[in-house]
Simulated scan of single mutants.
Amino acid sequence: MDWDHPDAPFTFVTDGLDSAVRRARAVAGERAVGVAAGDLARQALDAGLLDEIHVDLVPVLLGGGTRLVGDLAKAPVPLSAPRVVESAGVTHLYFTVGGGSRGERASAARQ
């Protein structure tokens, strides 16, 4: 793949989601690894690669949009009670996937 920005801080991964998450974990070290919401988050949940889901709740009704994770193959997915962090204009909700503690999986973020 040709890419005009050789110093860009990301890598194209074409051999699957599991490989991408593994590579991201290696680069991140002790830091968190995040995946975008939507179909990528659904695939990561179905593959057992997520341990936490973040939802940023803003008081606006849009009237349409894309579901957070779409149709899960392995539903239902149990979540913990949310950890709630409130700030001006947004409430951040953090759910542990499976109700357990944070492990080595990635996190899905919805902004």
Rank of each mutant, 00 (worst) to 15 (best):
L40W: 01
V21H: 11
I53C: 15
E52K: 09
G16T: 03
D39A: 14
A20H: 08
A47Y: 06
V60P: 04
R42P: 03
E30Q: 13
V55Y: 13
A36P: 08
G48W: 05
H54G: 11
T66D: 11
L61W: 05
R23A: 00
L57A: 13
D51G: 11
A26G: 13
L49N: 07
L45K: 09
A41V: 02
V58F: 04
V35H: 00
L45G: 05
E52Q: 15
L49K: 06
G65F: 10
R22T: 06
L17R: 02
L68V: 12
A26C: 10
V58A: 02
S19V: 04
A24E: 01
V21Q: 12
G65L: 07
R67H: 11
L17A: 01
L62Q: 10
L50D: 01
A41M: 04
R31Y: 11
A41F: 03
D39T: 13
I53D: 10
R22L: 03
A44T: 04
V58T: 05
V21A: 10
Q43G: 08
V35M: 00
A37Q: 14
V55S: 12
D56A: 15
G29S: 08
D15A: 06
G29E: 08
A26I: 12
A41C: 03
L50F: 07
G63Q: 04
G34K: 14
P59V: 00
A47E: 02
G63D: 05
V33F: 09
A41E: 01
R67E: 07
R31L: 06
E52H: 11
V27C: 11
L50A: 08
I53K: 14
V58R: 06
R31G: 02
T14R: 07
D39I: 03
E30H: 13
V60D: 00
A36E: 15
G63P: 07
A32C: 09
D18P: 12
G65A: 07
D18W: 03
V33C: 11
G64I: 04
E52L: 12
G48T: 01
G65P: 12
G64C: 07
T14W: 02
R22S: 11
V21D: 09
L17Q: 01
A41H: 06
L57E: 06
G29A: 07
L68A: 09
V33S: 12
R25Q: 13
D18A: 15
A37K: 08
L17V: 03
G63I: 08
G29D: 05
A28F: 07
V60M: 08
S19A: 14
V55F: 14
L68G: 07
A32V: 11
A28V: 12
D39W: 08
D18E: 15
G64N: 06
T66Q: 14
D51F: 08
A20N: 04
A37S: 15
T66V: 15
H54L: 13
D39F: 10
G29K: 09
G65K: 10
A37M: 11
G65H: 12
R23V: 01
R42V: 02
D39P: 12
L62Y: 12
V35L: 02
